[in-house]
């Protein structure tokens, strides 16, 4: 355990330069805008010079860029900076929830948790459809199913997410009206941050069902690319382990097929987990489009809005969070290796 702790600390320290790099990069991009952000924040052409000047003072826009950057990062650290667009503190918007959301009504959940929930749903699709599909196609190698899965994987990575979204909306909403596209019910109390889990913990089952009903389709759309990718990697690595000597020896010592499959699957898990980790990042990245298609007030849309309105404090906050989650996902993958494979040492 001491080893794990030291490993974690070492890895978390390496996060810092990357986080600084990422935010600095976005900051520089934001500063490439020739337009005056203060004017845009104050309301455009008609804004009074006094208001613009006050905003300049508030965000240190008259100072050199590095002062601005340090100011921004400091304020982000203490959650003391307000988005000039939503007029909420940035971490309130993203994480803690606000008394008044964008739409006016308050929310206990930050935008991040809405996206996280969507991503987790999509992740479930990937794991529970992708992996079994991959195993089946490995066991029935070169069969019709196998080539279907292979093609499906290619179709998956070729499908425009927004188009798939509209196709399903057309089928399930326009034609048959079996899904809802508006509203986002919240449980009465925030516990874990994931709405469904909170609703279930509170025993508010109908709210949980509403949330699931609302997210089932968007999550499928978001996860669609991943399902094929995971099915394919599962197939290939399962095939590789299925031909390994220890499986041959397993047969020779008379193990049942189910047991042999357990051995093969566990050994195939390392590449699968690696790709799952990458997929998690991919899902976060795909969120803006899916959220736009289905009108989900998540973090992806928040950031797209921030970019459109030159709201770069919010943008940098969001990017910081994205990068952090991304790196955490990688870290979890590395820790998972050690649980799967006793040969892995920190």
């Amino acid at each position: 355990m001491a080893e794990l702790k030291r490993f974690l600390i070492r890895r978390l320290v390496t996060f810092i330069p990357t986080l600084i790099g990422v935010t600095l990069l976005v900051f520089i991009i934001a500063n490439l805008i020739p337009a005056d952000p203060a004017r845009a924040w104050a309301g455009g052409e008609k804004a009074s010079p006094e208001v613009i000047e006050r905003i300049r003072e508030e965000y240190h826009l008259n100072d050199p860029w590095y002062v601005q950057y340090v100011f921004l990062m400091k304020k982000l650290f203490t959650n003391d900076i307000v988005s000039p667009r939503t007029h909420n503190k940035i971490w309130d918007d993203l994480i803690f929830g606000t008394s008044q959301g964008v739409a006016g009504a308050g929310t206990k959940y930050g935008r991040f948790f809405i996206t996280l929930q969507l991503t987790l749903f999509a992740f479930l699709y990937i794991v529970f459809i992708g992996i079994p599909l991959g195993i089946l196609s490995a066991l029935k190698k070169d069969s019709l199913l196998d080539s279907t899965v292979r093609t499906l994987a290619l179709v998956g990575v070729s499908t425009p997410v927004f188009w798939l979204g509209y196709l399903l909306i057309y089928i399930f909403f326009v034609r048959f009206r079996v899904i809802e596209l508006a509203g986002f019910p919240e449980p009465t109390q925030r516990i874990t941050g994931i709405m469904v889990i909170d609703a279930l913990l509170l025993g508010e089952n109908d709210i949980a069902i509403q949330i699931i009903n609302r997210l089932a389709l968007p999550a499928f759309v978001l996860g669609f690319i991943g399902i094929g990718v995971i099915a394919r990697i599962t197939r290939n690595s399962f095939l590789e382990t299925w031909n390994a000597d220890y499986i041959e020896f397993g047969k020779a010592r008379g193990l049942r097929k189910s047991r042999l499959m357990r051995h093969a699957l566990k050994n195939a898990l390392v590449p699968i987990v690696t790709v799952l980790g990458l997929q998690f990042g991919g899902l976060l990245g795909g969120a803006p489009i899916t959220e736009t298609v289905f009108g989900i007030p998540g973090m992806g849309r928040y950031m797209v809005e921030a970019i459109r309105n030159f709201d770069y404090p919010a943008l940098i906050g969001g990017v910081l969070l994205f990068a952090l989650i991304y790196m955490l996902a990688n870290l979890i993958v590395d820790i998972a290796y050690a649980f799967i494979d006793p040969r892995v040492r920190y």
Binding site: D245, Y246, F249, G250, D341
Partner: peptide, 12 residues
Amino acid sequence: FQDPAAALDPLY
């Protein structure tokens, strides 16, 4: 088997 290192499942 010939190669004991390969015959044993490394994860158990």
